[in-house]
């Protein structure tokens, strides 16, 4: 069984947010509900100000704190290393949102970011929160795939409806192999500068492991011990630098 992991090369990332929109459309997310977000930070003073950005999917941690806080085991880790939410078990206590160090989780019953509320414009069937006219065919509540029912928490699932159908033994899940393209996560598939790589972290020969080694991959907030399965690599580029400015610097800015 593969242990799926992702590498994001910040030297290549252009901060375009195509990963975000590809994800939102593939996974029927609400406006502003960015399972895969791109975060921008500005520091320094003109003319030597710097702007940097970082794409942030779910880290699919090896030691996911969201899984251990979940009172109903609705959030769980699959054998192939992905953290999923079972919407049929989720009680909407939001403890996982509190416990996630990376802010990747979303509760659906909130004030809409953008008015008019798309939930009112495209009303959902039954318990589903909405029904976008472009809704995809996939729906699996037990894995948190598809349209979200009300009162539950959702998150990036590495496009589990795609990757779980990849042939057994797939090591590098990339566009390079025409036979595998349909199984590549939306964000990886569309990334124009090819800043994302996806594959098996358990296979020492995988492309992800090669890049992690060659470009000295790092993980965010190592001190929490969550051990993300999403690695960042960087070079000398301005988009580089995996140190995320924290609240102290943002407070000074305000």
């Amino acid at each position: 069984m593969a242990k799926w992991g992702m590498v994001i090369d910040l030297e290549k990332c252009t901060g375009c947010q195509a990963c975000t929109t590809a994800c939102q459309m593939e996974n029927n997310r609400l406006p502003g509900e960015s399972w895969q977000d791109v975060l921008f930070y500005t520091e320094g003073k003109y003319p030597n100000a710097q702007m940097k950005w970082i794409p942030r999917p779910c880290m699919q941690c090896e030691n996911p704190s969201c899984v251990t806080v979940c009172p109903t085991k609705a959030t769980y880790k699959t054998e192939d290393g992905v953290v999923l939410v079972d919407w049929n078990k989720c009680i909407g206590c939001k403890y996982c949102m509190i416990a996630c160090p990376y802010g990747v989780r979303f509760y659906t019953d909130e004030k809409p970011l953008i008015e008019p509320n798309v939930k009112d414009v495209f009303k959902g069937d039954g318990d589903l929160t909405w029904n976008p006219p472009y809704k995809g065919p996939q729906q699996d509540n037990t894995k948190g795939i598809g349209i979200q029912p009300s009162g539950v928490v959702s998150k990036c699932n590495f496009c589990y409806h795609k990757i779980s159908k990849a042939p057994k033994g797939t090591v590098n899940l990339s566009n390079d192999d025409p036979a595998l393209r349909e199984f590549v996560p939306a964000c990886v598939r569309t990334c124009a500068p090819t800043a994302r790589y996806f594959g098996d972290l358990d296979n020492p020969n995988s492309e992800v492991n090669r890049i992690i080694a060659a470009k000295k991959g790092t993980r965010l907030l190592e001190h929490t011990g969550n051990k993300p399965q999403v690695y960042y690599v960087t070079g000398a580029g301005a988009a580089g630098g995996t140190v995320i400015p924290g609240g102290r610097s943002s407070k000074d800015k305000a």
């Binding site: 977000d37 921008f40 500005t42 950005w53 990376y102």
Partner: peptide, 11 residues
Amino acid sequence: PLFKGAWVQGL
């Protein structure tokens, strides 16, 4: 804010 970038300004 945890990983909210410029979407959230300050606290």
